[in-house]
Design a protein around this nucleic acid. Structure first.
Length: 423
RNA sequence: GGAGGGAUUCCCGAGCGGUCAAAGGGGGCAGACUGUAAAUCUGCUGCUUCGGCUUCGGAGGUUCGAAUCCUCCUCCCUCCA
């Protein structure tokens, strides 16, 4: 089986240029995807195209990640309805460092045969003058050609700056540069990048008479139409400091059946027959959630580590399955270890005798909920649990509620957990 | 430059000068049912010392009383030049 065949089975091929599959079957080649350094960490959304690199490497080809230091300064109009803000050089540099560290976990940069490579287009754009660019690059594509791109067409009505308009040229030149100097023959990306990518192959043809190839993967959509990669708290980041491994693990555990079946194909390296078997197993006994569990395991281990995964599982066991007694039985260090990654709030020990009314405890004293009204509402809705036991309106927090003399586990609904530490 | 129309709570959108913290929808949160799923049903969705308090683009004004009337300002849209 070749990469394309594999990717196709996983639903990861959207558009593909004729000849791409043949090329990949015939020889080992280098292919790249661009990563926008808009933050100092990638999020699960970025993971979709990074997986293309991962698969590529698995099949013996050379994956190249292009961090868009230069393109990040321009802003891609694709899929954007409004002009983007430009980032300054310092921020971009900082972001690139973060992204690089994460890529190193997903791709093998040290293997002998086909080590992954990281490029930064800032290195070839920073010294290029405007005149050079216009004469040597801009000359090769017509306005008519560029205007025909969807990303441009959709913005003509509402307005599009020259800067964003020229984005496809910049990105196209990236491909040309990598083709010419890095032996890269294929560009990949999300399907929204198709227009930019073909600008690149076109440029290579016109500037050099060369032939380059490309393919894209479908953008990830969830069954209910909501945006992939977000949860209540915002983006799901790969950086454990921004999204704890526990939360990361939970994100995947919470995938719907339908989504999990898609995700496991796209985000794990599990062979397809194994995946098919899992899906079948899951259909027979959906309540066991074998699919979500495997999905969460594979991705958490890959992005974080086996340890972080084990940790997340322990925390989830305690939080979802455990009883009050189980919690009470844990020592302080066990408790802290198990609840690693659960949002923490502190409570001042002094000044309120030995009991505290529930409303103040939830709002003003710990900040778990933003206002007393909100706390009141949640209590009325019967959604608050203290140490796994539902509490009613008007109840109080007392010494007896403390686990190990200093902790309280608060839950709002089924999924929102908070650890309160008494100081 | 001229003539009109508009700006409302997270979003869309309704709103006789009092009974409007403001219809309705969306979204969000929660409860029930389940499987930490989907679908469905239900409730909640400004703050509060529960007396009230602060909200309807901004600043003033009229009035016992304004989101609703008047004046000026800002921004947006349409039409004419």
């Amino acid at each position: 089986m070749n990469v394309i065949e594999d990717l196709r089975q996983r639903g990861m091929i959207q558009d593909i240029m004729p000849g791409t599959e043949e090329l990949l079957a015939k020889e080992k080649v280098a292919a790249y995807v661009g990563v926008d350094p808009t933050a100092d960490s990638m999020h699960v959304g970025n993971l979709a195209t990074i997986m293309l690199l991962v698969f590529l490497q698995k099949y013996g080809h050379t994956p190249v990640a292009l961090v868009g230091g230069a393109t990040g300064m321009i802003g891609d109009p694709s899929g954007k309805s409004a002009e983007r803000n430009l980032l300054d050089e310092e921020t971009l540099l900082h972001n690139q460092k973060g992204v690089r560290a994460q890529l190193e976990k997903l791709l093998d940069f040290d293997t002998e045969a086909n080590p992954a490579r990281l490029e930064n287009n800032y290195s070839w754009f920073k010294d290029m003058g405007a005149l050079d660019f216009l004469r040597n690059v801009g000359k090769h594509l017509t306005i008519n050609y560029m205007m025909a791109k969807d990303s441009v067409k959709s913005r003509v009505e509402t307005g599009l700056s020259f800067t964003e308009f020229s984005y496809q040229l910049i990105q196209g030149y990236d491909f040309y540069h990598l083709y010419k100097n890095g032996g890269v023959k294929i560009q990949m990306g999300g399907s929204d990048q198709w227009g930019n990518i073909t600008a690149g192959t076109e440029l290579i043809r016109r500037m050099d008479g060369g032939e380059a190839f490309a393919f894209t993967c479908p953008l990830i959509t969830k069954a209910d139409g909501s945006k992939f990669g977000k949860s209540e708290g915002g983006n799901i980041w790969l950086d454990p400091n921004q999204t704890s491994p526990y939360k990361f693990y939970q994100f995947w555990m919470n995938a719907t059946d339908e989504d999990a079946a898609v995700f496991i194909k796209r985000f794990t390296l599990l062979p397809m027959d194994e995946i098919e078997a899992l899906i079948a197993e899951h259909e027979k006994a959906p309540h066991l959630r074998a699919l979500q569990q495997k999905l969460a395991e594979e991705i958490t281990v890959m992005v974080h580590s086996r340890d972080a995964y084990d940790q997340a599982v322990r925390a989830s066991q305690a939080l979802f399955k455990g009883s009050k007694e189980d919690l009470m039985a844990l020592s302080k260090s066990e408790l802290l270890e198990v609840l690693e990654g659960v949002p923490t709030h502190t409570l001042k020990r002094d000044s309120h005798g030995d009991s505290l009314d529930m409303v103040s405890f939830l709002s003003t004293e710990t900040g778990i909920l933003p206002s007393k009204s909100e706390a009141m509402r949640s209590l009325k809705a019967n959604s608050i649990s203290i140490n796994k036991e539902k509490v009613a309106e008007g109840s109080e927090i007392t010494e007896k509620d403390l686990l190990n003399g200093e902790f309280i586990l608060v839950q709002k609904g089924k999924k929102n957990k908070f650890l309160v530490i008494l100081e």
